[in-house]
Write a protein that binds this DNA or RNA. Structure first.
Lengths: 194, 194
DNA sequence: CGCGGGTTTGATGATGCTCAAGCCCGGTGG
DNA sequence: CCACCGGGCTTGAGCATCATCAAACCCGCG
């Protein structure tokens, strides 16, 4: 399981990990499996771990005063699942993260992660790149939410993230895009005929 | 002018810069001033520089097919202005960035910045922290855009970012929040009476 | 004074939401 | 093997929110 992460790091950096570094990673990241609908993080808890997803998928969402769920992030293989705010600030999270499919992941605490960053330059490089990608993706999503109507947001999403359409049901996609499942259903019906 | 950046780095890191590092920073970052409404980046160009704002303010926006401007980011002192996607990927930007007030800034190219990150661990630490803050802020804004109606988005914004209300006119704030200036005007009128 | 940028107000309409009902389909148990 | 159940998806009617368009207002500044 750890080899998946090591390959992932190598793929994203210029200098491959040497064996002692790989060993350090194997000794620090904790393997864990959870089943569909089990929680990785619950509202009110501090997000103690960052999770590298080896297999499966998870969802991050808040629940409003009317009990409605709002899906903020969807995670699949090779993504890092966590509530960034809680993980970095060590404050209680307002989000839940649970498994949507049975999921295998590798966990690391903030303290361990910071130590690894100093010990393994390649990991620091990967981490910086991942953060950049996260920022770019968030910026695009934000731009789309302030600039475009629901129909175009869905069209962009389905062309850029087709794999998510397969892995998650429509009502989750709808919420992720900031619309209701009914609206998404109508948008899709309309899109068929064009 | 460079001292502002050096102080800023020291404030965000555990180990203060030593003189040779400070000197390296002074030699690498290029001071530049632009006047209100001058462009720092125009649609179609590659974002060659990241800008640390010493004084003034800037706005990042896209222009849609009907000519309407959508303000994605607002920058004031001690923020880093750039189009992340274009700066990192070296692709042409779909955004404009211009000065809203007369602005003084320090510029650095991507290549120089990457070199500085290796040469100055404190800068790498600051950079990581800034990226984390950027991710956290983007996540909050995204959550608010999918979870809350315009009125609550404005209330949250004005309590968390009161300084922006002073620095930018309402029609820009409205666009930043993803609503029209007319709607924002009505929301504010309504909020007065409560 | 008049101009320009910003804000407000009003009337109208589109977009997307709510609530409620029905449908489809895969899985479970009788 | 079939009946039923539940989750997800669709459809419809009515409604709230927010956008559009047009006009007026406000105010600092040349």
């Amino acid at each position: 399981m750890h080899e998946s992460l090591i390959k992932y790091i190598d793929r994203y950096t210029s200098t491959p990990l040497i064996e002692s570094q790989a060993e350090l990673i194997r000794n620090t990241f904790i393997a864990k499996q959870i089943k569909k609908r089990q929680f990785f993080l619950q509202e009110g808890q501090v997000c103690e771990y960052a999770a590298f997803i080896v297999k499966g998928s998870m969802r991050q969402y808040s629940v409003d005063d009317k009990g409605a769920e709002h899906f903020l992030h969807l995670f699949i293989e090779h993504l890092w699942a966590m509530d960034r705010e809680s993980f970095v600030m060590l404050t209680p999270s307002v989000y839940n993260i649970d498994a949507w499919e049975d999921t295998e992941m590798l966990l690391v605490t903030r303290a361990d992660y910071l130590n690894l960053l100093s010990a393994i330059p390649a990991l620091a490089e990967m981490s910086r790149r991942m953060d950049e990608r996260t920022i770019i993706a968030a910026q695009e999503r934000l731009n789309s939410s302030i600039s475009f109507p629901a129909e175009k947001r869905y069209a962009d999403f389905s062309s850029k993230q087709p794999e998510f359409l397969q892995r998650f049901p429509q009502h989750i996609i709808a919420s992720y895009l900031g619309i209701t499942k009914e609206s998404l259903s109508r948008i899709r019906k309309f899109a068929m005929k064009t």
